[in-house]
């Protein structure tokens, strides 16, 4: 059917275009990259110009004959103005080049590439569909979006393009790890990697024990509210208040815990926090 349609496009809808003393027979539409022909009337030699925003052609032609343009000559979709200049005669007309209806490429805009676990509608994807010549395909086509989470849970939706574009939103799941976000149309697809990272620490807790003249402070393994281990390097702040003074140290998590030695002061109050999340408080009485 497609071949027939292309053939009809190429030859079936040709129409005469009035001119001052010659005529042009132009196709109304040409599929991008397809062969086409332009016939003129009159006698003698002339020059044929085809101009659009994507391509420009110039051919020496014999008036009264058909000029053939092989496949691949015009491939940028758009509107093309045609001018014929001959022996004291001129003609003009126009035709359109339309995108190939077979998608060959899609631009997949997926955001973000990293987000916290458990966010509703946290992941968005948008697709623009193009043919092999990078022409936007305006006819409606189905796009399948599929998000596979680290726990192999899959979310998917099929969205029909409008004016060449389609979009979707999806949730991040409760488990940290790497998601695969795929957009596909027929045989073509594009994949994005989405990192699901732990959220804020939850139930931050530390313990203290003496270490000579110091206090050794150590947190329990730090996890978010979904039970994911908060990544190493996350800053945990220990603050010790004593006798109107205070000591502070920002410690990065190492192997899931933060630990530090601070001066031992009698009746000191020690607190722990990470970002805006507060943990427990210890009163050091020794």
């Amino acid at each position: 059917m497609r071949a027939v349609a292309a053939f009809l496009l190429m030859i079936g809808v040709a129409a005469p275009v009035c001119a001052q003393s010659s005529e042009l027979m132009l196709p109304a539409k040409v599929e991008a990259g397809a062969a086409f022909s332009i016939q003129s009337t009159g006698t003698g030699k002339g020059t044929l110009y085809i101009a659009g925003l994507g391509q420009v052609l110039k051919r020496d032609v014999q008036l009264g004959e058909t000029t053939w343009f092989p496949a691949g000559t015009l491939y940028n979709a758009g509107h093309y103005a045609v001018f014929l200049a001959g022996n004291g005669s001129a003609a003009s007309g126009a035709f359109d080049v339309v995108p190939v209806s077979q998608p060959a490429d899609l631009s997949f805009l997926a955001r973000p590439s990293r987000l916290a676990v458990g966010l509703h509608d946290g992941i968005t994807g948008a697709v623009f569909l193009f043919d092999a010549y990078k022409n936007l395909i305006p006819v409606s086509m189905p796009i399948e979006f599929r998000l596979t989470s680290p726990s192999s849970e899959t979310q998917s939706s099929t969205v029909v393009t409008h004016n060449g574009a389609a979009w979707t939103v999806m949730d991040s799941t409760a488990k940290q790890g790497t998601d695969k976000f795929v957009a596909s149309s027929g045989a073509i697809s594009s994949t994005r990697i989405i990192g699901q990272v732990p959220g804020d620490p939850c139930g931050l807790k530390m313990s203290a024990k003496p270490a000579g003249r110091q206090i050794q402070l150590q947190t329990d393994p730090v996890r978010d509210c979904s039970g994911n281990a908060v990544p190493d390097g996350t800053i945990v702040t220990f603050t010790e208040a004593y006798n109107g003074a205070q000591s502070t140290v920002d410690v990065p998590l190492k192997r899931g815990i933060a630990q530090v030695e601070m001066p031992a002061h009698a009746d000191a109050t020690i607190t722990v926090a990470s970002g805006v999340i507060l943990g427990n408080q210890i009163r050091w009485e020794k």
Binding site: G244, A245, S247, D250, V251, P252, M262
Partner: peptide, 12 residues
């Protein structure tokens, strides 16, 4: 994440 700097004996 290195270096860690302790701020000790802060007094207002």
């Amino acid at each position: 994440a290195d270096p860690v700097i302790e701020i000790d004996n802060e007094h207002l």
